[in-house]
Design a protein around this nucleic acid. Structure first.
Lengths: 342, 342
DNA sequence: CTGAAAGCGCTTACAG
DNA sequence: CTGAAAGCGCTTACAG
């Protein structure tokens, strides 16, 4: 059974395709009687417009593209959910692509989306991305682009972020306030902006409190991901190298959970011997033992905000209105739990 | 900067659009010289075909739709990842929609996908879905449809599933083999097929081992979701009502984690006083304390298989080859951990 | 109030 | 080897 077309409806009703099209769209210059007739037949025939034809004419696809580093990830699934739900309200569909933290893949997927003529692109950068040509190409083609969470400062587009530096500062300050004297940092991979900012916040908190900043207490990951095993490995290393550390600010909850699991195994008491603050407020951090003090990162809201901003730019673009990039910062909050004192 | 069209290339080269189109697609009846010229210019102009125009002609969108109950879910994110990665290999894009476990939304989203003329649809049913008209409509329109995980036996299409009943049987048998004498079951919501099948496997294992099946030991959820709180509540209830229970087979790891958290709070020792087997092998079940014995459910592989089957049917459909629905069962495995004895 | 016509950007059967 | 023409299914400016 083939989809019904305007032409078929027109033929059955003995009127023109033009009139059918207008009737369906409630143009004011069609008689109520004709409208009723057309709508009724369209309904019984289960007519739905061929979106390709519509898009070819209108130059709108009502589809946006989303490129994220990793789908299987609590924070990003929440972002996805926020985007999808907001997009739905405006009748937009979302094509999701995963970059796997790889620059090459990310680039390829941006190209794919461009050739599919999506109306706009939402992206959170791969950790491996240090070159932004593919993103600047999007902007040059006048295609709305909004970055969120993992952004590049150098790319001229709107960005939805949190204040990573401030949040990291607050996290570190909490360790200091609860009595930690020597505080380490698991900073994750080297490149991404949020790794950098969280590190800077950590460092600033130490210095502002008159504490020594010791580069040896900053642990990097081996690769571009933030995994459970990174947490285990870095915890084991720290335990050997710096037994005097009594607090750690950890880049991501997943890594914090790995670290806790290792400390549990080693018999190191949390928070008595060592306090831990994570980042993200991943659901699991409220359920593991001990529960993890962490920074709540609003994934769902970030997804919603990102779509809204993109939608705004798509509309502006359609109406040929120039619009300047915005930086929107979302609030974070420290969530106190068992992995830090009182 | 507007996207380049075939016409523009043709004009610059003083040849016809037809020839440009053919050259780009390596038709054998175009001279190598022309081909080279065309390809070079296309590359420098950054030409990409307008997908709407292509699709309008070819009736293929190279896009599929995916409807799942919930994006923020370890199992489903793995499925998504499997689907996306497999789709990419064949040049397909994936539009993801979330039904939120609601029949109404699911129906609406199927319609959306149909009107967007996707080449095929992949779906895992909402727990609230008991009427299948919207799915039969897809099949009647001759659009390839593949169901996975949460399926409806009554719908005539291909299905990718695990043997829930067998897996549940093995899970329950493991409780029996490790000495449990009175085994309860948290079965989740009432409707979905996999809830039913897991329950049946549980019951069968009891009866096959000459144990009594006591309906009072089967706990349902309040709503259509499987949440941490369901686990907590049902554990608390079970603790009050049936203090003699020494093993529970729980429908989903998330619920098992809730139950464990409640038992920890109540001071009930796991597995000494009560053994627990979950379902899914959610990453967290290997990290929580105690780690959870569970059934490994291959989400990523399920996603891959689902796409492969859909792709097969899309190709068959394109070539007007009739194809009969297939039921593909994926293997599961019991993963033994600390929440059950030895 | 209705409709003929042009055109969106492609692909492909056909003619030369 | 090249190209004119038709057509995919719509929308919309224009004429009447």
């Amino acid at each position: 059974m083939k989809p019904v077309t305007l032409k078929e409806i027109a033929e059955k009703l003995n009127i023109s395709v033009t009139t059918v099209s207008k009737a369906l769209k409630d143009y004011s210059d069609v008689s109520p009687k004709t409208k009723a007739l057309v709508k009724e037949l369209a309904a019984t025939l289960n007519y739905t417009p061929n979106s390709f034809a519509v898009h070819l004419r209108t130059k709108e696809s009502k589809t946006i593209g989303l490129v994220i580093p990793e789908v299987v990830h609590h924070f990003f699934s929440n972002v996805i959910k926020g985007i999808i739900s907001e997009a739905e309200k405006e009748g937009y569909l979302v094509i999701i692509l995963q970059s796997n933290e790889s620059y090459e893949l990310e680039k390829k997927q941006i190209e794919l989306l461009m050739s599919h003529r999506v109306d706009g692109i939402l992206i959170s950068l791969a950790n491996g991305t240090a070159d932004f040509k593919h993103l600047n190409a999007v902007i040059e083609q006048d295609k709305p682009l909004v970055m969120f969470d993992k952004i590049a400062k150098l790319v001229k587009c709107s960005k939805i972020i949190i204040d990573d530096q401030k949040a990291a500062y607050i996290a570190t300050q909490h360790l200091i306030d609860t009595g930690c004297k020597r505080i380490a940092h698991f900073r994750g991979p080297l490149l991404p902006q949020n790794s950098i900012d969280r590190f800077l916040g950590y460092k600033k908190a130490l210095l502002d409190n008159g504490m020594e900043y010791d580069p040896n207490l900053v642990y990097l990951n081996d690769c571009d991901e933030n995994s459970f095993d990174d947490g285990k490995m870095n915890a084991a290393k720290l335990y050997k190298e710096h037994n005097d550390v009594d607090g750690i600010f950890i880049n991501t909850d997943m890594v914090a959970i790995g670290a806790i699991s290792e400390f549990n195994r080693l018999g190191v008491k949390i928070p008595e011997e060592i306090s831990i603050v994570g980042f993200s407020n991943w659901f699991m951090s409220s359920v593991i033992s001990p529960t993890i003090t962490t920074i709540d990162q609003p994934g769902y809201a970030m997804g919603q905000t990102a779509f809204k901003q993109l939608y705004k730019e798509i509309k502006a673009h359609k109406n040929n209105v120039a619009i300047s990039p915005e930086i929107i910062q979302l609030e974070t909050a420290l969530v106190k739990r068992e992995s830090t004192k009182n």
